[in-house]
Design a protein around this nucleic acid. Structure first.
Lengths: 106, 106
DNA sequence: ACACTATTTGGCTATATTGCCAAATAGTAA
DNA sequence: TTACTATTTGGCAATATAGCCAAATAGTGT
């Protein structure tokens, strides 16, 4: 693989990696309809706020979410809603695998 | 987060995680048009064959690729071509981030 | 200045992933 | 059977990720 190609796939992988965690997927899903502050997300997720904050920084670093400050709060929103399209395919994969396993059982 | 919800997002994350590596992204891209055997993929990627084989098993385990045996070879193909749709959004994110950074520089 | 709220960062340990080598396996062909 | 080819697996060291706690920071309001 050429160096250029390598760099391309690394850049792509960085974005996908940012989505590759249950908590971060949940965050993206929560931001689907409305922007939320860290405290609100933390409450939904049920982890330490510092953990959530780090997840958010991964998403932000990848360019998936964006922030704005409002008084003392930091409001996160979905900068690239197209990532929501991942869910559709992911569900298809899960469903298709489940069906295939049913067939194996017969 | 409820236990059920947790499990849902973990299952989803597993699929996305399988895509979250440059070599595996490249594999998926290579399988886009035609099925390939391990040796062919290994040559394109330029890593140890055992490494490629492990990447392939991650993809297979996630249900993204499938295999068939042909003589002594194992032919991998893209079972869920919808994962290719990831690329579109990923490119959008990269492009949008690049543009934003240009603006910051001015 | 102060106290207060919201968030981020540093530090740490535990766990997971990656990639190479060497060895094992599976299947083919003689 | 043997030799051969293609692939997978085990083992290991290096690196990366996750999540908690405690401490630091940023901004608001008094």
């Amino acid at each position: 693989m050429t160096q250029q190609n390598m760099a391309r796939y690394e850049a792509r992988a960085k974005i996908i990696k940012a989505m590759a965690h249950p908590a971060r997927l949940y965050i993206v899903d929560l931001l689907r309809h409305t922007p939320l502050c860290v405290a609100a997300l933390t409450e939904k997720i049920g982890a330490d706020m510092s953990t959530v904050s780090k997840h958010l920084s991964v998403l932000k670093n990848a360019g998936i979410v964006s922030t704005k400050k409002e008084k003392t709060q930091v409001i996160y929103s979905l900068r690239m809603p197209c990532v929501l399209d991942f869910f559709g395919c992911v569900e298809k994969v899960i469903e298709s695998t489940a069906k295939e396993q049913l067939i194996q059982l017969r």
